[in-house]
């Protein structure tokens, strides 16, 4: 290192500051600030994606060894068929899982994560702040309580005997006891996941409504608009972006979620969605049979769907703001 000519002395007795060029400072800054995140992301998110890509084309099972490459896993999901439109047709169990996933995702999303979340956000923001906050806190309770507890509560609520909370309420109303777990399994998982999804949507939409300038509401009221007109002309237009964000993100989250389904329904055939199929065939405690390659193949399909969703999200999100250039150039 050559002697710098413009060295500034910083007070008597202080050692001269280490002389670093802009470039070397940039390197150390990047290492210090971004390094840890890169290590974590690379090792536990990026590498697993590629691991999955490889394992999906093997025959890995409980021994966790790769013996050779094969497309056998995908043949379990679909078989070639010259008559079919795309040249293959889906096998029964996978076809069922796929259609079940679609019904489950669409129902939960449409009923709870969007419609009900919107209703909650609109009604709680129309009330005084403390009261609206109270109801929002109640609705966030399932989200904030541990998943095993939440699953347990569901099991006790829909218990088919007279002890179940639902049946107690029905008995008070003079109705016959029901057994939703057996008779309406899809409804159970839609509502159970919906309660959680509605609270997330509610939070996002509430903060979006809050960020609408107060003057717009005043102006609309002075212009003669009633509550419903204000919702239609002022609030809903402002929620376009958050609503599409919720749609894209939550549909994917629902597609890959299996925690509550597993905790409430166990490995029941009526609620065997794609994510559940992959989980029960591999790692589920007690019943997972370690067919890692098969699970990886299903995961690969989910990854492809995820990529497609990422592309949609890409188009939706405000890239220009995300990528705004920093205004300090020195490192």
């Amino acid at each position: 290192m050559s002697r710098p000519t413009n060295l500034i002395t910083r007070g008597a007795g202080a050692p001269p500051p280490p002389v670093m060029t802009q470039a070397s400072r940039q390197t150390t800054n990047a290492l210090v600030f971004l390094g840890p995140a890169c290590v974590f992301l690379l090792c536990l998110l990026v590498i697993p994606i590629f691991v999955d890509l490889v394992v999906a084309f093997t025959d890995m099972s409980q021994t966790v060894r790769i013996d050779g490459f094969t497309t056998k896993q995908f043949e379990k999901l679909a078989k070639p068929s010259p008559e079919a439109l795309l040249g293959f047709e889906l096998r029964g169990s996978f076809y069922r899982a796929l259609s079940l996933s679609a019904v489950y995702v669409v129902c939960t999303l449409a009923i709870f994560n969007i419609s009900f979340a919107l209703i909650l956000a609109l009604t709680t923001t129309a009330l005084p702040d403390w009261l609206g906050g109270l109801y929002r806190a109640i609705w966030l309770l399932p989200r904030m309580s541990p998943s095993v507890v939440y699953g347990l509560l569901w099991l006790w609520t829909i218990d088919p005997t007279g002890r179940g909370l639902l049946n107690q309420v029905l008995a008070v109303a003079g109705l016959d006891p029901v057994n939703p777990k057996l008779d309406a399994p899809l409804t159970v998982i839609v509502v159970a996941n919906g309660f959680i999804g509605a609270s997330i949507g509610m939070l996002i939409l509430t903060s979006a409504i809050r960020s609408i300038p107060q003057h717009l509401f005043y102006a609309a009221r002075a212009d003669g608009a009633g509550s419903l007109s204000i919702v239609r002309h002022i609030v809903l237009p402002a929620l376009r972006w958050p609503l599409s964000y919720i749609t894209v993100f939550q549909s994917l989250a629902l597609l890959v979620s299996f925690e509550y389904i597993f905790l409430i329904m166990g490995p029941a055939r009526q609620t065997m969605t794609m994510a559940m199929l992959a989980y029960t065939k591999t790692l589920a405690p007690g019943i997972g049979s370690g067919q890692y390659a098969y699970g990886a193949a299903i995961t690969l399909i989910l990854i492809v769907i995820g990529m497609a969703v990422a592309l949609i999200l890409w188009r939706l999100s405000n890239m220009k703001r995300l990528l705004t250039r920093p205004r300090i150039e020195v490192q």
């Binding site: 003057h215 717009l216 102006a219 002075a222 003669g224």
Partner: peptide, 15 residues
Amino acid sequence: RDRNVGIVFQSYALY
């Protein structure tokens, strides 16, 4: 809405 009052804000509050 029933007062028939027009109002202009500092921020204009255009929709």
